[in-house]
Simulated scan of single mutants.
Amino acid sequence: MSPLQPLVFFSGSLLSTQSGSNPQWFLENTPIPGANQLTYLPIASGNYKVQISDVNGCTAISDPFPVTITATEEEIVKGDLRVFPNPTQNSITVKCDSQSPLKNGLATIYSLSGAPIASQKLVAKNQAYEAEFDVSKLNSGTFVVRIVSENNVKVIPFVKQ
């Protein structure tokens, strides 16, 4: 007997499911590496599913849950926004080459499960706004940087080797 089909919920910016063990998230029927928590922070538009299992190893998969990411870089900041180097081993820099002041800019690193790892304010430096993060102690995998400035948001993935 298979477990009950999991339901997918969307709250804030996270997808979640409430039951089951060994969750695995999928985007367009392809497993997302490292996405094996009850929550997931989507970084691309598409149809998401979650597969769970019960104590006997039987699995069930949710119906597709459509997610549309609507923000574009132009809506976020007036300038070039980058996260580098990507992939990285030790550190990343979040940089916005902006012609105008970037008010209240904040960069936060998240795991793919949506757990915040570190946050820093973007500070003015050489006609740009920057934040530098030491990621040397993170496990290898994919993470995202979420950059917020006033009411605008941009999410950029990066790979820690």
Rank of each mutant, 00 (worst) to 15 (best):
P87S: 02
T88W: 09
Q37H: 11
L112K: 05
V50Q: 02
L4K: 13
D63Q: 15
A35Q: 12
V94Q: 05
K103E: 03
G57C: 12
V155P: 00
N47Y: 09
V144W: 04
T39C: 06
I156W: 08
L41Y: 15
S53R: 10
Q5E: 12
R82Y: 04
N152G: 03
E75S: 15
N36F: 10
F9D: 04
T72G: 14
V148F: 06
K137R: 15
E73T: 10
S113W: 00
D134Q: 06
P3V: 14
L41P: 04
E73M: 14
L38Y: 00
D63R: 15
A107N: 06
K49M: 08
S62N: 13
N139I: 02
D134A: 07
F9K: 07
V153A: 06
P31L: 08
N104H: 12
E75R: 15
D97T: 09
S11G: 07
K121E: 10
S11Y: 05
L106I: 14
V55C: 10
V145N: 04
N56A: 05
F10A: 14
L106F: 00
S91K: 06
F65M: 13
K49E: 03
P42S: 04
E74W: 10
Q120N: 10
I117D: 02
N47A: 12
N29P: 09
S113L: 03
S119Y: 11
A124V: 01
P64F: 10
L7E: 11
S45M: 00
G34T: 06
F158Q: 01
D54E: 11
I43L: 03
S19Q: 13
V8I: 15
E74G: 11
V159P: 00
L27I: 08
L38H: 05
V148M: 14
E130V: 15
V144Y: 01
V123R: 07
N152D: 01
F26M: 10
P85Q: 09
V77N: 00
S100V: 07
F65V: 09
N152R: 11
D97I: 08
S16E: 00
Q37R: 15
V155K: 03
Q161H: 13
F26Y: 15
S100P: 09
A44L: 07
T17G: 05
P3S: 03
D54S: 12
S45I: 08
P101K: 13
S62K: 11
V155N: 01
Y40A: 06
Q5R: 12
D54C: 11
Y48E: 02
S45A: 04
T142G: 01
N22D: 08
K95P: 00
N22L: 05
F9G: 09
W25V: 08
S100K: 13
